[in-house]
Every structure is written in structure tokens, then in C-alpha cells.
Design a protein around this nucleic acid. Structure first.
Lengths: 185, 185
DNA sequence: CGATACATGTAAGAAGTTACATGATTGT
DNA sequence: ACAATCATGTAACTTCTTACATGTATCG
């Protein structure tokens, strides 16, 4: 993360971009949806929002609302938009696959709304291509190291491989969904 | 983690239990195997080992070896064994499934060697049972919220659901592998 | 009137990241 | 001689966790 923004930061940025929100709104999203394994604790979210505000990636305006307690509605700044776009546009690496697959899915979830269908399709094709390199590597590791591993270790590894295989099938299907969508126009 | 031991700590404990090892050995395991998404940085591992040693869960003996630089071989203490066993024996919760599935797989990988096949089978059956509750919940969420979600958000969620479905199929198969193993005796 | 949901934050401490420091041994 | 591998650690910084603090509005 050479930009100095954590994954939580990008998650917040992406959600705010989809729809301006308060810290409380964002907390609820993390608490109530099965997506993302982000913390819903105020001790993580409010400081993260403060950092984004200090970097001028988001800006809060206090809603003079319906008499409720003050509520700060957060919006992306121009710089925030740019930062999010840069993050979404980064090429997919093997290292992303092995260590940051949740980050990849988070990027995907925001891509369509932010950069459009063509960019999303490019992302999915690239993801599929990288998985087609990565998965056989895992399978080969399993084949060569498996026999000398204890059975439970081998099974645990197999579980991981099956997960990536499922992701590959998903990516292929998602590619065709987007191809259809684009062709339909 | 009310025991005050992090997941990295348990990973180290489990690996040391399988085979006494040095910090360097452990680093290499994290760096070279696709299992576990643990840091291979000395700045994470050595302090973690120090904490385990301070809690008297592991004990290091300097190997008067082949002339190489001093190498501290780490072994579990009796208390370390007990701690690992407690961790491995904890019941599986829905929260484990949604927020700590990597911890569950790590536990599984160590279970057989530490507690034997019968305990491993119990774990797998429990995992399968919890997944049979969890997966339909995810599917229901997808069905009810999916239609009002943007396509990419829905697909991202589907990817997660597919991953859990794959894990459920894996768990069922692993159960039968262990049933066979036990019956064969 | 009490519980719950709304709403935003802070403080202390634990743990991880990155980068640096140190030094021995082995192979070329 | 030099690079790579073995081997263990520390320091500064960032971030997250847990727990606390504070206060309003609504519902039964």
C-alpha cells in the first residue's frame, strides 16, 4: 500500500463514492452486510475517516437535519475520486491473488459504478488470465508436496485450491455476463 | 482472542508442535508455502515468538550445531501443548465462519497431528453442519438484496457465496475421507 | 421512564509493517 | 573478493482492538 491508504480506507472511499454517507451509515454497512470483513467499530472507522479527510480525499458537511443529532455527510473530493480511480486501475498481480484476493473483490465491487462496464470487463479478463496461471501453480504444488504432507495439511491446502478454482469459474462466468451486457447495447 | 494469542501465535505454536523449528525455519514456511497468509517478516515473527516464550508456551534451546551461526530451536512446553489443544477444541461458531474462516482452516490443518482422527472428524462434521446453516443464509441475503444491488456488487457477493459453497462441498468430502480412514482400522 | 437506535468520537495498549543492523558460512 | 544464504533481532511508525464517553430522539 504505497499510497498510505489502508484497505479499510479504500472501502470507505468506494462506499462514499457510491452514495454520500455518514460514519454511522458506513458502520452499519460493515455490520449488516456479509460483504467485506471490515471492522464495524467506531475506533477503526472514525480515525480512518479522519485520515481521509486530512488527506483531502473526502469532505464532510454537517447536515442541518430533521432535529437529529448532528450528522456529518461525507462526500469524495476531486482528489478522492482520482485516488479511487488509480487504485481501481492498478494491474492485477500474482501477489494480489495469493495475498490480497479480498482487495481484488473489493475493487471489482466498485469498478462498474466508478469506471464503467468496459473497464470492469477488462478487469475481469485480467483476473481470469492471472487465475489461469495461478491455479495450475497451486495444483502443481499440491501434487508435488501433497504426498509427503500429513493428510489434514493436504486437505487444508486442497480447500484453498478448490476456493481458487471456484473463483476462476466465477470469473469466467462474470466475463460472459459483462460481454452480454455490453453487446446488448 | 481472549487468550491474548494472535492467529500468528497459534500458527507458530502449531508448526512448532509438528516439528521443533527455529524462527528462520518458520519464516521460510510462511514465505514458501501457499498455506496461510502470514507475514514472513522478521519484525512480525521474532516478537511473536518472544511473546510465546515469555508466556512459557515455547522454549528455545540453542543448538550447538555444525558451526553455523547460533540457531535457537523452539519446542512447545507442556503449557504450550495445553494452550494449543484448547484452541483446537473450541466449538465452531457462525462468527468463525463469517469472519475467521482462515483460522478454522489453520485449526483443521493442525488437528489430526495433535488430537487424532476422531477429533478431526468431529471438527469436520461440526464445520459441515455450521456451513449448512450459514450458506443458505448467504443465499437468502443474495436473493433478497441482490435485485436492488448494482450488478458488480451482486457478482462480488456471489463470488463469496460460491466460495462458501465450495468449502461446504470440500467439508463433506473431507468428512468421508476421515470416515473411511477410521473405518479402515 | 427506560430501552433502543441514532451519532460521533477518544484513550490505552497490542500488534503488524518497513527498514535497518549485525554477523557467520558457503559457493563461485 | 563478493554474493547469497543462514540466522536473529531492533526501532519507528501506523493501525486496529477494546473499552469508554457523551448526548439526542423515539418508541412502548
Amino acid at each position: 500500500m504505497q499510497s498510505g491508504i489502508t484497505l479499510l480506507g479504500y472501502a470507505l472511499l468506494g462506499l462514499i463514492q457510491q452514495k454520500p454517507a455518514s460514519g454511522y451509515d458506513l458502520r452499519k454497512i460493515f455490520a449488516e452486510t456479509p460483504m467485506g470483513t471490515f471492522s464495524d467499530s467506531p475506533g477503526a472507522i472514525y480515525p480512518a475517516l479522519l485520515r481521509l479527510e486530512q488527506r483531502k480525499l473526502i469532505q464532510g458537511t454537517i447536515e442541518a437535519g430533521s432535529g437529529l443529532r448532528q450528522r456529518k455527510l461525507l462526500r469524495l473530493t476531486v482528489a478522492g475520486h482520482a485516488e479511487l480511480k488509480t487504485w481501481l486501475s492498478a494491474p492485477i498481480t500474482q501477489d494480489d491473488l495469493s495475498h490480497r484476493s479480498n482487495e481484488l473483490m473489493l475493487r471489482f465491487a466498485f469498478l462498474d459504478h466508478m469506471l464503467g462496464e468496459a473497464a470492469t470487463l477488462r478487469f475481469l479478463r485480467s483476473l481470469e488470465a492471472e487465475l489461469r496461471i495461478y491455479v495450475p501453480g497451486l495444483q502443481a504444488f499440491l501434487k508435488s508436496h501433497g504426498p509427503k504432507m500429513p493428510i489434514s495439511g493436504r486437505l487444508a491446502l486442497e480447500s484453498g485450491v478448490l476456493g481458487y478454482e471456484a473463483q476462476l469459474r466465477w470469473a469466467s462466468r462474470a466475463v460472459s455476463v459483462y460481454e452480454q451486457k455490453i453487446k446488448a447495447k
